[in-house]
């Protein structure tokens, strides 16, 4: 194994990993805010699928920029439904989330088929790629980090902003307070309902955005079932990332890179049965997670809150 071979392996695996990471990361970021405010959103998968379909259809008829907007808004709408049910009406968050996941998937396919007949293979224009001239030449990490779609850079910016807001601003403090001890937060004058509703809508918005990133951004098309479980991975990544945006970035990146790595190992044909390699990302994530054990789950996560209790 020559050095050049290893460098090429690492470079391409990292680049592929970053691409695989993106939708999971975006969805997980939104979920971080939702869960930090104390609300579990198990509907990410359906919201992503819904955003992917709506975003694609809009992009097809009105252009890719509007597709992005439409995807985000459709996700926000589902987030609103989740907020009404679980925050306002104190429905069990697990049921509410799972139901919306189901609804989202059904509506996604229904919408897509209302516009496109079976057998058509519509495509849309994706988003531009940006290559940063000097930095992308850095060996190994250059192409992965500096020669990517504009969506990637956008996401990094969102991660930074999300992290700053959550940990360095009053808004973030309020959100975290609501997630830890809503009663105390209410007593201090923070509107628990309002904060939670806003965070859940944001979570849904990001899920829808993640869907559009996947369909229009990365694949320039919509395929039924294309989310293929990323929503559930995002949920796990949020926990893995200890509910903080930068750790979530690391966690989803880890998962994406290991996934890309196992595909490459299969391609290289080193003799390991394919199915064991397919399991690798899940086992790896679990092992890493179990080893670093500090748990800082928001205290009030999953518990409904009643105003004035």
């Amino acid at each position: 194994m020559s050095l050049e071979y290893v460098v090429n392996l690492l470079t391409t695996v990292l680049a592929s990993g970053v691409r695989l990471t993106l939708p999971i990361l975006v969805a997980a970021l939104g979920e971080v805010y939702a869960e930090r405010s104390g609300v579990l959103n198990l509907g990410i998968e359906g919201m992503m699928e819904f955003g992917a379909a709506i975003g694609f259809v809009t992009a097809y008829f009105y252009g890719s920029e509007y597709g992005l907007l439409a995807g985000a808004l459709s996700g926000a709408f589902m987030g609103l439904l989740h907020a009404i049910l679980s925050v306002r009406l104190r429905v069990n968050q697990v049921i509410s989330g799972l139901t919306l996941a189901l609804l989202g998937e059904g509506l996604a396919i229904f919408t897509y088929r209302s516009f496109f007949k079976p057998g058509e293979a519509p495509r849309v224009r994706g988003y531009p790629f940006i290559e940063i001239p000097l930095l992308s030449q850095i060996p190994i990490i250059g192409p992965a980090l500096f020669d990517q779609s504009i969506l990637f850079y956008l996401t990094i910016v969102i991660v930074v902003i999300a992290s700053i807001i959550l940990f360095k601003t009053t808004i973030g403090l309020n959100i975290r307070a609501v997630g830890e001890n809503p009663r105390a937060a209410e007593a201090l004058g923070i509107s628990v309902y309002g904060t939670r509703t806003a965070c859940v809508i944001f979570g849904g918005l990001m899920a829808g955005l993640a869907g559009v990133f996947l369909s229009v951004g990365q694949m320039s098309m919509y395929y039924e079932g294309m989310v293929a479980g990323r929503g559930w991975i995002a949920l796990a990544i949020v926990i893995f990332g200890r509910w903080s945006p930068h750790m979530v970035l690391l966690g989803s990146f880890l998962f994406g890179v290991v996934d890309a790595f196992q595909l490459r190992v299969q391609a290289e044909g080193w003799g390991i049965p394919h199915q064991f390699l397919l399991m690798l990302p899940y086992i790896f994530t679990l092992v890493v997670f179990a080893c670093a054990r500090k748990a800082v789950q928001p205290e009030a996560l999953g518990l409904p809150y009643k105003k004035g209790e």
């Binding site: 949920l235 679990l286 179990a290």
Partner: peptide
């Protein structure tokens, strides 16, 4: 260790 993530994986 959070059982949700463990069981999903």
């Amino acid at each position: 260790v959070n059982e949700i993530i463990a069981t999903i994986m």
